[in-house]
Design a protein around this nucleic acid. Structure first.
Lengths: 145, 145
DNA sequence: CTCTGTGCAAAGGATTTGCACTACG
DNA sequence: CGTAGTGCAAATCCTTTGCACAGAG
């Protein structure tokens, strides 16, 4: 699904944390591991459950705080999916692309990207330092049409 | 900012409501008017304040319910901007494109779209009926670099 | 007139503090 | 060892629900 293996991505995230001076606690490792395993598109509480399958002692607060931290670092991103709690998606080198069905909230991820050029163009036009992007198509999936 | 004038868009939305069998109440008109005036990128509570500048009697609940209704009709869309409350953005014929600064949460909207073709492609590949899309570039604005 | 829409207040969730304790580096 | 990180519980904030009343068609 992602272009990099889980292990590679885990290392990338750990490196990113270190570089910014954040500590590599076991809680954070467990949370990141759980997040990579489930592939994202999950709520904070949903992630907590996955985390608890690995380590019961990690608290809900740590999950919330770690998600916030990863968001700041540009590694994940909260999005609306249906209503209720925020869903977090993994960013692969700043990119993410998916289709969302407005009927059943199904998510289909896809790779691609003719957007490098557009980013370049916008960066120049607005003097904006582009770090990544999110592309979301919405509509009706096969079953919901 | 938008390709259509406010009046035109107001009429479009009112027409869309009528066609779906929803009533054109004065509260809804006021809320839509306020939303178009401020250009979107606003929370439910923020919008309530704008609405109250026009009509003090409109309640918070009506704003929430109207936003939900407009979302269902595909006229607006909730997104996360930073954390906290949902922000609603206006969709222009199902499209929206913006840059968000991760430093100060500033939003720069832009028109464009080389994405029609990609939508077409994805629609065929996944048998998905594409109704619209959201493109979000994020990074650092001029002041926050 | 009828039935959708509204407003209020209270409930329900999700997320955020405050603070003492733990453990990474 | 010192400071960033953690966990708990309480607080806060956002959003939804239940119900009686008002107003659009």
């Amino acid at each position: 699904m992602n272009t990099n293996s889980l292990d590679t991505r885990l290392e990338d995230i750990q490196t990113a944390l270190k570089q910014k001076g954040y500590r590599l606690t076991s809680s954070r490792q467990t949370i990141v591991e759980a997040l990579l395993t489930c592939g994202g598109h999950i709520t904070a509480d949903g992630l907590l459950e996955v985390v608890h399958e690995i380590d019961q002692t990690v608290g809900r607060m740590t999950v919330y705080r770690t998600l916030e931290l990863l968001s700041e670092l540009g590694l994940i991103r909260p999005v609306y999916q249906g209503t209720g709690a925020a869903h977090y998606i993994l960013l692969d080198r700043g990119h993410h692309h998916h289709l969302i069905c407005s009927g059943c909230d199904a998510v289909i991820e896809f790779e691609e990207c003719g957007l490098q050029e557009m980013g370049q163009l916008l960066a120049e036009r607005f003097n904006f330092m582009v770090e990544g992007h999110l592309v979301e198509f919405y509509g009706r999936c096969q079953n919901c049409q």
